[in-house]
Design a protein around this nucleic acid. Structure first.
Length: 457
RNA sequence: GGCUGCGUAGCAAAAUGGUUAUGCAGUGGCCUGCAAAGCCAUCUACUCCAGUUCGAUUCUGGACGCAGCCUCCA
């Protein structure tokens, strides 16, 4: 039985889809004005893993992840670059998809864009005004009136009085309450704009997600995810908007992933301590990045450092080493390991424990290989690949993971060393091995007289 | 100031009211010409103080420390 930690109740709860066998999941995606950093990668990988496991568990899943392709930062960046905002967003959407593919993140079923959802957004704002929850401010912008929504603060555990006591927002005279947030923003000259009943303008950020999620998944759906920082105000505002507009419960389960940290600090654009995915990919294989993310629980903080990535690489190498020499086969899957794996994942997607099952599997596989128990080895290897697949890892050929690009010179050196060994010329054999080691090539003699090699992790 | 969450061995990271996490590193062994890889064994834990309990790393309360949110942020 799958249990998921629900931010709304701050408890792990048995997961009950609204409709038996079907799940609707919405995740807040990127605002596309720059390259994805490792924090974004975490969201993509975490919810991709959730999606994979829900499907494995037999649910018919509709996974929606939006793209915010219009907002202040996009407009600002496009102006800086002297390009049309569509040109900017298209470029970064392509880059994002490239990063995703690298990280084995499967595309969501639906990827709505804010700019393509303007009619839905306008309709929802009209409903909110009609319901007395929104008003036109002194500057022509449309605002949501947080006082009018009784449960405001339910998700983030805040109440309006506390928020007001500590609020750091500049007083905006156009608003009735400083905590009111904008639904429709009037365009300044030269800014991208869409016609609306309130004049030319663009949607506020929060309303986009309400409109897109409702539109794709209905008024009430199962799972809504995103980063911790979106809890307040973004998700709180989504609830206020959607429930205010439809009168129905918006979402059953709220999932929030923890941050990536650098030196115990949140990785973020404003702190400037971020690493883009493509930057890290220059030094590390994409699968190592994915594995690194899976190595901690999705709600825990994840400390980013080269040491951590190196360690992840070493650990992943161990799994691939176990798979070495065993081609993908249609061998039976070992159900005991599968059920241990499922048990771990059923417990709020506990990937660290699921991975520990893979390591135990790898040990048993190594033992079977040493004992030359080929049937057992084939079964365990097939199981390891299968379970790895549920996490989006271990789908490469072991040799190509361990060796990378083939290199003829290495083969020749190995051959020369085998000759030297036959002649019991240990000095020469060791010299060849040391020379390759200096190039990051590790030689490993196999009992049958051959020698394999791999690159240092 | 208000609200969350966290504090586990050398490092990373889980679970758990009494029993092996797991990976890396260390130590001893097997294997090897020697290595590497692999296997076996093994050493390092639960921030502190009270309380509940036959028993607490695990539950409760407090202290200290850390991170996050309360402004855009995944």
């Amino acid at each position: 039985m799958l249990k998921i930690y629900n931010t709304l109740t701050r408890k792990k709860e048995p997961f009950q889809p609204r409709v038996a066998g079907k799940v609707g999941m919405y995740v807040c995606g990127m605002t596309v004005y720059d390259y994805c950093h490792i924090g974004h990668a975490r969201v993509m990988v975490v919810f991709d893993t959730v999606a994979r496991f829900l499907r494995h568990s037999g649910y018919a899943l509709t996974y929606v992840r939006n793209i915010t392709d219009i907002d202040d930062k996009i407009i600002q960046r496009a102006a800086q670059n002297g390009e049309a905002f569509e040109q900017l967003t298209e470029r970064f959407i392509d880059a994002m998809h490239e990063d995703e593919r690298a990280l084995s993140v499967l595309p969501p079923d639906i990827e709505p864009k804010a700019t393509q959802s303007i009619p839905d957004i306008i309709a929802m704002i009209e409903t909110l005004i009609g319901n007395g929850l929104a008003y036109i401010g002194g500057n022509g912008d449309v605002f949501y009136s947080v006082n009018k929504f009784a449960n405001y603060g339910q998700l983030s555990g805040k109440n309006l009085d506390d928020l007001q006591a500590g609020e750091r927002v500049d007083i905006d005279l156009a608003k009735q309450n400083p905590l009111d947030f904008v639904l429709w923003k009037m365009a300044k000259a030269g800014e991208p704009a869409w016609p609306s009943p309130w004049g030319l303008g663009r949607p506020g950020w929060h309303i986009e997600c309400s409109a897109m999620s409702t539109c794709c998944l209905g008024n009430h759906f199962d799972i809504h995810g995103g980063g911790m920082d979106l809890q307040f105000p973004h998700h709180e505002n989504e609830i206020a908007q959607s429930e205010g507009a439809t009168g129905e419960t918006f979402v059953n389960v709220w999932m929030h992933n923890g941050f990536v940290r650098v030196n115990e600090e949140k990785m973020s654009k404003s702190l400037g301590n971020f690493f883009t995915v493509r930057e890290v990919l220059k030094a590390y294989k994409p699968e190592i990045i994915r594995f690194f993310i899976l190595l901690s629980h999705y709600r825990s903080p994840l400390n980013y450092s080269d040491e951590q990535l190196d360690e992840a690489g070493v650990a992943l190498t161990r799994l691939y080493t176990a798979l070495r020499g065993l081609a993908a086969s249609a061998a039976t899957i070992n159900s005991e390991y599968v059920s241990r794996f499922e048990q771990a994942m059923d417990d709020d997607f506990n990937t660290p424990v699921a991975l520990s099952v893979l390591f135990e599997l790898a040990r048993e596989l190594n033992i079977a290989k040493q004992a030359a128990d080929t049937a057992k080895a084939a079964e365990l290897a097939a199981t390891l690949r299968f379970l790895g697949g549920l996490l989006g890892i271990l789908q490469n050929d072991a040799d190509s993971f361990l060796q990378g690009d083939a290199d003829e010179a290495i083969g020749q050196q190995i051959q020369a060393r085998i000759e030297a060994k036959k002649a019991k010329n240990w000095a020469l054999a060791d010299k060849i091995r040391d020379e390759l080691k200096a190039q990051g090539i590790i030689l490993e003699d196999v009992p049958n007289g051959t020698t394999t090699w791999r690159r240092e992790a």
